[in-house]
Design a protein around this nucleic acid. Structure first.
Lengths: 157, 157
DNA sequence: TGGGATTTTTTGGGATATCATGGGATCAAA
DNA sequence: TTTGATCCCATGATATCCCAAAAAATCCCA
């Protein structure tokens, strides 16, 4: 298992803690750091998360981030500066810092959204709106979808 | 064997479990993840399914997009966010989550429909109607093809 | 070729484990 | 001391495991 999939909504308790879905924790299992790395998304009111390993990849510039080679430094600078390392408690919860809560507009519920190699934490209503628009676009861009998968015989609806 | 073929109808028990047809399970045998990946079809009231390997292929394709592109967002938001990883129990059953049940309008029976590299789960009646219409359209097209063709013997599948 | 016997599937449900959540107690820093 | 974070345990809810019967497909040998 290597991908973050599906969306689950969990409660933020009065201490500010949220359970990271067990399925997501399973993806992270086996990593040295028992927790997640979280930083404000550049494009959305959401918190972007992954394991420590991915952060290290970004640091090395392996990802498509290096397509932006001239901006690479700026990107990683803001990225690392705003990233938070959130450890799991005994029950697999993390404590969200104020900065991330306000960036994602979180109150008493948090949507954990799988996005493949990473996942995001959203305000549930905000994500619902965002996703509705994404689905609409996907339906429109059917052509692009068919081109995307390598080896995919177009079975993509 | 590598393709999902034929259609079988299985029962959804009161716990929400369904047996994945043994023939389909055989296609998936040998994969690292013992189960299926399922997500709502964009175009039909059906659940589209495949093995984890296929999802990873899609992920690889998506990764080739620039991380900040809108295509990337749309794809991950629709594909990964709605995908569910469903593990087999000891008897080869999966537990269908509420979101998929409602998308496909499933109640106490589920039709497993082979579609080559993927398969779909339908409400049996809905699928029957859909298929009747597909057959009708195919027949109609064949007719047009025979009438229209400059040179082609209508080898259009 | 037939039809009973055997093996694989599918289905059902009780027992068990896991997960999300809440809150008290403990600890550390200010 | 006061505040906030961490640890620890308790509790429903839910999913998973495990065993057993029903149903279906397959085999087999006369």
């Amino acid at each position: 298992m290597a991908l973050f999939l599906s969306t689950t909504i969990n409660k933020v308790d009065r201490k500010g803690r949220v359970s990271v879905p067990a399925a997501f924790r399973a993806v992270l299992a086996g990593q040295a750091f028992h927790g997640i790395v979280a930083f404000p998304s550049f494009k959305s009111p959401a918190v972007q998360c992954s394991g420590m390993d991915r952060m290290e990849q970004l640091a090395a510039g392996v990802d498509s981030y290096d397509l932006f080679s001239d901006e690479h430094d700026t990107l990683t600078a803001t990225l690392f500066a705003n990233a938070e390392q959130l450890a799991f408690d005994g029950e697999g919860r993390v404590l969200l810092p104020e900065s991330l809560i306000s960036h994602a507009n979180l109150s008493d519920q948090a949507a954990f959204v799988g996005r493949g190699p990473v996942f995001e934490i959203w305000n549930p209503e905000a994500f619902e709106a965002y996703q509705a628009e994404a689905v609409r676009q996907a339906a429109e861009q059917k052509l692009t979808l068919r081109q995307a998968p390598p080896g995919g015989e177009g079975g993509q609806p």
